[in-house]
Simulated scan of single mutants.
Amino acid sequence: MVILLLAIPITALIEAPGKLSATDSSSASIAQSQPEEQDTASQSTASEQTGEQVPVQPGIVGPQKQEDAGAVVPVTASLVSLWENGRVDMSYFDDALFIGDSLTQGFQIYSSSFENATYAAYVGVGPKELMQGTVSNINGEQVSAIDEILAANAGKVYILLGTNSLQNLTDEAFIKYYNDFLDYLLPQLPAETVYYIQAIPPVSAEKAAADESYALSRIQSVNDQLAQMAYTRGLNFVNLYAGLAGEDGALRAEYASGDGIHLNDAGYNAWREYLITHTAYRQGNPYLPGSPLYVG
């Protein structure tokens, strides 16, 4: 019995160093894993802010769960869109040109507008029509769109096209013509021109249900392709869809006109507000006091 009682503490003393070593090893593993997880989270945040494609490790949940090592997060509208970085003064739009169809033309009609900006907006047009022949301006005059665009001598160009094309073109054809238009336009403008590709806005829930051409899932898919196009070309992408949509993804009822596609004055006010607060950072931008990037 005496021998047995003495054996218990002796055994504990012999096993203790091994147990302590295993505990230290486990703690080291946990400590080493934490920085990796933090780095991955930082990497994901950087990707969302810069729009860069970032390699993702297997099993990490980001914009899309990746199964293969070395896979990259796909470019989507939500991933590469400009984030809110502060309000600019309206003088920012002194040298801005808005290119688009009747949606953009509404800025020339409603009080919620950029009165100091220039417009090349024409009813019923898509990217193809802007390159071919003449179009009808807000005064009903037949004009050459490209001539008006070049005459504006703009420092910033905002483009919104696609609402009409959803009805008469496939998604593939629309993206092709959009790329063709940019290939046609960009070499004719100064290299320092700042471009904003705007997402196609949502339509009302009633319009989306009644006309499959304007299904919300389709608009979102096309916007992802526009985001990819802007990202590939190094242009800014403005997620106007997100700025005008409600929780159900449809155009907010308080912004919709009678046809469910066009906007009312409140909708243009929301659109204007979104652009004022979503600009590409440039040193010297006229940010207002209280904005994160304001320098007094």
Rank of each mutant, 00 (worst) to 15 (best):
G126M: 04
K176N: 11
Q142I: 02
V2K: 14
S29T: 12
A16K: 07
S26A: 15
Q38R: 11
V2M: 10
A280F: 08
Q66R: 07
S204H: 09
T104R: 02
E254S: 13
Q43M: 13
S26M: 12
A256W: 06
G140K: 02
H278E: 00
L263T: 13
T170Y: 10
G124H: 05
A208W: 03
L235M: 14
S112K: 05
D171N: 12
V73I: 08
P292N: 05
Y158P: 01
R218Y: 08
S291Y: 02
E48H: 10
E206N: 09
S221F: 07
L288D: 01
F107Y: 15
P187Y: 03
S221H: 08
A280H: 08
Q132T: 14
Q43L: 13
D211C: 05
G246M: 06
E273M: 03
A7R: 14
A209P: 07
S25H: 11
T134R: 10
S204T: 15
G140Q: 06
Q64L: 15
S91T: 15
L160G: 04
V157W: 12
S44N: 08
N269P: 00
V194H: 01
N223I: 06
A46M: 11
G86E: 00
E254K: 10
S221G: 03
T23N: 13
V157S: 08
I109Q: 10
D180H: 04
L251N: 09
E84Q: 03
M90D: 14
G62E: 10
A210Y: 00
V61F: 07
N264E: 09
A96R: 04
S27T: 11
D171A: 13
R272H: 11
Y158L: 00
L160A: 04
A77P: 09
W271G: 06
Q132V: 12
L166P: 01
N116H: 13
T277K: 00
S111G: 08
D248F: 11
Y177S: 07
Y255R: 08
Y287V: 01
E148H: 09
D89T: 07
Y255V: 14
L288Q: 10
K19D: 06
E192R: 03
V135T: 02
G86Q: 00
L4C: 12
L186Y: 09
F237K: 03
W83T: 13
Y158K: 00
V157L: 07
E15D: 00
T279D: 01
E36T: 14
G18N: 10
V157P: 05
I60F: 14
Q167E: 13
N236Y: 09
L216S: 12
L182W: 05
S217I: 10
P55D: 14
S204C: 11
V143H: 11
S213A: 13
V80R: 11
Y281H: 15
T193I: 13
